[in-house]
Every structure is written in C-alpha cells, then in structure tokens.
Simulated assay, not measured.
Amino acid sequence: MLHTTIYHSFTQKHWFTLTILFIAIILASIHPLEFSSYLLHQVGTAFMLIVLILCQKKIGLSFSTFLLYICFLLVHVLAAHYLYSYVPYNDWMIQYLHFDLNNAMGWDRNMFDRLVHFFYGLLLYPFFYRLFQVWLPSLSPKIWFILVIQFVMASSLFYEWIEWWIAIGLSPEEAENYNGQQGDIWDAHKDMFLATIGAVFAGLFLSKK
C-alpha cells in the first residue's frame, strides 16, 4: 500500500505543479466576490502550502501524494474565489454539457463546499497516511488507516471551530460569506461527515492496490 518512490527534494515535476498552483492563486485573486473573505480562505492555503513544503523536505513524500495535495489546494483556491457558496459549477455544466446537475439531484443549494470537504478526506488521505507511517512506524497498515480516519474527523472538527471563532468576530453578512452555511443548521456536521467518507473511500481503494 502506497509503496512508491519517496522524494525528499523538489524535482522538475514538483516545481511544475507548484507553478500551476501559484498561477491559479494569482488568477483567483483577480476580482474575487468578496476580498476580505477571500483573504481569510487564502490564509489556510498559505498554511497548508508551508506544511507541504516542510514535510516534503523533512520526511519525504511520493510524487502522487504531493500531486493530490496540490489538487486539493487548487479546488480550495477556486472555491475561495467564489466564496465557496457561489461556485457556478451548475451553470458550467449546463453551458458545456447541457446537463442540470442540481435539478437532477434535487439540490436547492450550491453544493461545491460539500465537494471540497469530501476532497479533503479523499485527496489528503495519502499525505496523512505518510505522516503516521513516519510518526508511528511500528504500527500496522490497518492501524494507520484507522488513525488517518480519526485525524480527518478531528481536524475537520477543529476547522469548524476555527470558522466559528472567526465568524463571531464578523458582521452577520461577512460571517455568512465566510462560512457559506447557506441557511443549513447542520452544515458543519455534513461537512465533517463528507470529509470522513472521502478518507474512508481513499483508504479502502488504496488498500486494494
């Protein structure tokens, strides 16, 4: 499971993926829907990028793990530009695929924020798995799997606490823009659940390889 070449340095393909991310950040910074909320989201981007670079140098990551991490950041950067709640994914699907996803699924809200939380568990599972391999090398793959799932659950909860802490210092309108709750009182619970499901899917899939 996850037995791939571990890189401790940055190769040409690492720099290429980082360049794509930086270009995406520049483009996303052009006229975001609400600049202050956009900046708050990008604080998270900067933090996660620092963590990725440090882990690449200190413990080493496979390129696939590095790439999936960057893919998550790209999705997050896109969502940040549109304040998560206003990503026009359904308009894009109607325009280019002639398919109304929201109508077909019976959704009455923008669901892109749910997708990002699902991707948090799905795309970052290999990264978290690598961390536990290094921190607790004597444990078995089954225990690492359980620890990653628990970590995704705990970190998702911590993120929701951070959102709440930030929101109480903002105006109601700013808080709604930042949180993207869209009137759903169970928004945080559903987000945490989807992140957990994403991690479980990734773990089960990779365990079969």
Rank of each mutant, 00 (worst) to 15 (best):
W161F: 15
A188F: 03
A199E: 04
N177G: 08
L194A: 09
F158N: 03
W164V: 03
A202V: 09
F151I: 07
S171P: 05
W164Y: 14
I166M: 05
W165S: 15
F151S: 14
F201H: 02
Q181E: 10
V200F: 09
H189N: 11
E174W: 12
I162R: 07
L170Y: 04
P172Y: 11
I162T: 12
M153Y: 07
F201A: 08
F158R: 05
I166G: 02
V200Q: 04
A195D: 01
S140I: 02
E174D: 13
I162A: 15
M192R: 05
A199G: 13
D191M: 12
A167H: 05
I162F: 13
W144V: 15
I166W: 02
D187S: 04
V148C: 11
S156G: 12
L194C: 02
I149C: 14
Q150A: 15
A167F: 03
P141G: 04
W186P: 01
M153S: 11
A202E: 03
I166V: 15
W161V: 14
I146P: 00
H189D: 10
I162P: 04
W161P: 01
E176L: 04
W186S: 09
N177I: 06
G198W: 10
N177Y: 14
V152Y: 11
W186G: 04
L194S: 05
I149V: 15
A188N: 09
F158L: 15
N177W: 13
G169V: 05
A175S: 12
I162H: 05
E173P: 01
I168S: 01
A199H: 08
S155Q: 11
I197E: 01
V152N: 07
W164C: 01
D187K: 07
S156W: 06
K190C: 00
L147I: 09
E173K: 10
V200L: 13
L204E: 11
Q150H: 07
Q181Y: 08
S155I: 15
G203W: 04
W161I: 15
